[in-house]
């Protein structure tokens, strides 16, 4: 099954106020590791990023998961490394690889 994971920055998270450079670096490295793990296992089918860097929606992932529970676990992992609030939407029908682009 395919799922769309939509990551948004939680309102009032304070992240836009001040971001420690060490924290930023830590997050980039942690998130990059998580994404590469997802790729290695063939779970990341596609991704999309907003054109506007200030958009509330930060990124969308299309992932393969055996069921909704598994998709929720992936969403929780992504939320943990990114700090995003992640919504999970099951995709029906054929390939949804273009979503979010």
């Amino acid at each position: 099954m395919r799922f769309l994971l939509a990551g948004t920055r939680p309102p009032g998270s304070g992240e836009t106020g001040e971001l420690a450079l060490t924290t930023a670096a830590h997050r980039v490295v942690a998130a990059a590791a998580w994404h590469s793990w997802l790729r290695r296992w063939g779970l990341l089918l596609s991704f999309g990023l907003p054109r506007d860097p200030a958009a509330e929606l930060r990124a969308c992932l299309i992932v393969a998961a055996s069921d909704e529970q598994a998709a929720n676990r992936l969403a929780a992992g992504w939320g943990a490394v990114s700090g995003y609030r992640v919504a999970v939407l099951p995709l029906t029908g054929g390939s949804s690889g273009e979503a979010g682009r």
Binding site: T16, A31, F47, L49, A54, A59
Partner: peptide, 20 residues
């Protein structure tokens, strides 16, 4: 300062997916 912060956040959003 806000713009510089948002720039770092943009890197945080994009680099893990698109590569550094």
């Amino acid at each position: 300062e806000d713009v510089a912060q948002e720039t770092l956040l943009a890197a945080f959003d994009r680099w893990p997916l698109q590569g550094i």
